[in-house]
Design a protein around this nucleic acid. Structure first.
Length: 587
RNA sequence: GGUCCCGUGGUGAAGUUGGAGUUCACGCCGGCCUGUCAAGCCGGAGGUCGCGGGUUCGAGUCCCGUCGGGACCGCCA
């Protein structure tokens, strides 16, 4: 019940069934329409909606005044029903208006028109922005997501445990926010990039199933889908395999989606990392559209065309004219721009072909291909007249990456457009690439991911071929989160460190506080974490997580409302034992 | 660190080969108005064209720099 001493109803809740009732409602003055001294229509707004109050005495109320209205609910006269309002068939008459607080005119309209207002102004006056229906809805979507996740995790036997925000610095991975110690000058706490350390220790501690809707902090540059601080569903389970983790996390995601949309999404699809790269060229494939990469290497195995001959991997995408008429009809300028884009990503070049009637192709390189190659190409790609074919020949990595990017450039809809296509990407490689300095493989995720048991024999011989029991959850091309089965065997952990070129001594120095507990009986365990902000944004129909965060930072990492970050007093610095460097020369 | 786009009364925009702070809508203030709902009509106020240089007889407009906002790349093990 939302009734209080001051109100009997919420504005947006009044209906025809309330006709005749004397009610009191409280809220902010939206729009007022005055007709002479003795009649005014006042749209009164609270978070539930808007109710029209008919004021037939002389009251001076302006935009955003806070008022209490007591009156009688009545049907609107014939022909004056407003079908765009949920309360549009009724109004409050015989109004007694109490002005609870006056207000200065707001800097922007507190309604849908503020969607067009510069976002910095919205952020500077966020408390006014949040009065609007859009933000009220988004915060409520967010709460519904959190609530559904909590309920589902509890139902599945997960224990909510809160973990520290102040912890030791672990310089691997994302840049950390640091907090100077007052009692130990020169020492610092770090704020967690994630509760990874803590949740694995909770497994050693016998908690069995842990979850937390946890605040994570990373001092990296901001984006539409990245803030300094963000929330994750963080979870870890003992005595499980990968299936157990995917099953349980999947339930939480499905519950959250259902709580918002009212319908459970279909079963979350699966794809291996290798297949995702082969077909979509990215490890976070957007399954809402086609334009899949087509394998062409063997087709050109004996080609005379120099750019293709001997290439490790040749693939193409077919921009079909029926679905992408604009892109398929690109002129020379646009095709040159696509080629530049491909080169910027790393390709040596981009071959384009326009398919003509009868399977002929128009392309600068058509003359280098045999009739047979042209015919096979058109048939393999299923191309028809009007289609545009884009081909890349390069190393496998480069070919799939370039075409994957072009695929997204050409076909990818805004992230929040339906349908929702969730997919698990599994079997990520344990190592990705080679460190140019040490010559050692670099960890794909973090060095505690369990290698795939089928690939253990490749560890010392072909480490780059070793798959990990690591997986991502992807929605409409956004990475929602990732997880893995962790290494719980000290000997295997040592082996992985060795591959990474980390000696026992160094491992002990860098990860000792983490590895030590594993000597006291660590159960097999694994877990996952996914971003609440990202999931909420997509479910709320937003393409920017700032829209689902009450008080976000701008892309430069500042808060226009509080002006944070701000300089601090010399006395504060002194107490912390800190001294600032002089400003760089020339400034 | 990089690429690209943006910055004009409170808000959103337009501003042509460089020619007077010009224009439009909303908001604001005042007046009129008894069924409106983006109410309507009349009148009014409100500006360091982000900031600093430069070119020019003359800069919102061209050039350089800088600050701020946004998208992306790097980065996010």
């Amino acid at each position: 019940m939302k009734t209080t001493a001051m109100r009997t109803h919420m504005c947006g809740d009044l209906r025809e069934s309330d006709i005749g009732a004397t009610v009191s409602v409280c809220g902010w003055v939206g729009r007022r329409r005055e007709h002479g001294e003795k009649l005014a229509f006042v749209d009164l707004r609270d978070h539930s909606g808007i109710i029209q109050c008919v004021v037939d005495n002389d009251v001076d109320v302006r935009s955003e005044y806070v008022i209490r209205v007591t009156g009688v609910v009545r049907a609107r006269p014939e022909g004056t029903v407003n079908s765009t309002l949920s309360t549009g068939s009724v109004e409050i008459g015989d109004c007694v208006v109490e002005v609870l607080n006056s207000a200065e005119p707001p800097p922007f309209p507190v309604d849908a028109r503020a969607d067009e207002v510069d976002e910095m102004i919205r952020l500077k006056y966020r408390y006014l922005d949040i009065r609007r229906e859009r933000m009220q809805k988004n915060l409520r979507v967010r709460a519904a997501v959190n609530s559904a996740i909590r309920a589902e995790m509890e139902l599945n036997g997960f224990l909510e445990v809160e973990t520290p925000l102040l912890m030791p610095s672990t310089p691997e991975g994302a840049r950390e926010f640091l907090v100077p110690s007052r009692k130990d000058h020169g020492s610092f706490f770090a704020l967690p990039q994630s509760p990874q350390l803590w949740k694995q220790l909770l497994m050693v501690a016998g908690v069995d199933r842990y979850y937390q809707i946890a605040r994570c902090l990373r001092d990296e540059d901001l984006r539409a889908d990245r803030q300094y601080e963000f929330m994750q569903l963080d979870a870890e389970m003992s005595f499980v395999n990968q299936e157990d983790v995917l099953e349980n996390i999947g339930r939480a995601v499905v519950a959250a989606a259902k709580a918002v949309t009212g319908v459970a999404p279909p079963e979350i699809q699966r794809i291996t990392w290798r297949e995702a790269m082969e077909r979509f060229g990215v490890d976070k494939p957007d399954l809402r559209f086609g334009l899949e990469l087509v394998e062409l290497t063997s087709l050109f195995s004996s080609t005379e065309f120099k750019a293709f001959a001997g290439a490790e991997c040749i693939k193409g995408i077919r921009v079909d004219a029926a679905t992408y008429p604009e892109a398929a009809a690109y002129g020379r300028n646009k095709l040159d721009a696509l080629t530049d884009r491909a080169k910027k990503i790393g390709a040596k070049g981009l071959v384009w072909m326009k398919v003509q009637a009868g399977g002929a192709v128009d392309s600068p390189v058509a003359k280098f291909l045999s009739d047979d190659e042209r015919a096979q190409l058109v048939s393999t790609m299923g191309a028809v007249e009007g289609d545009l074919l884009l081909l890349v020949a390069d190393s496998w990595d480069t070919t799939v990456e370039v075409l994957g990017q072009l695929r997204n450039d050409i076909g990818r809809p805004p992230v929040h457009e339906g349908p929702y296509r969730y997919v698990w990407v599994t079997e990520f490689p344990l190592f990705v690439g080679v460190d140019p300095v040490t010559g050692r493989p670099r960890p794909g995720h973090h060095p505690f991911c369990h290698p795939h048991p089928d690939d253990l024999h490749l560890m010392s011989t072909e480490p780059l071929k070793v798959r990990a029991l690591a997986y991502d959850l992807v929605l409409n091309g956004w990475e929602l989160g990732s997880g893995s089965i962790r290494i719980h065997e000290p000997e295997l952990q040592r082996q992985v460190f060795n591959e990474l070129g980390i000696s026992d001594e160094e491992a002990d120095k860098r990860f000792g506080f983490f590895l030590q507990p594993f000597k006291y009986g660590a159960p097999p365990h694994g877990g996952f974490a996914f971003g609440i902000d990202r999931l909420t944004a997509i479910l709320a129909g937003e393409e920017n997580i700032r829209e689902v965060i009450a008080f976000p930072k701008t892309q430069s990492g500042a808060d226009p409302m509080t002006n944070a970050p701000t300089p601090i007093e010399a006395a504060q610095l002194a107490e912390l034992g800190l001294r600032l460097l002089p400003p760089p020369a020339g400034s």
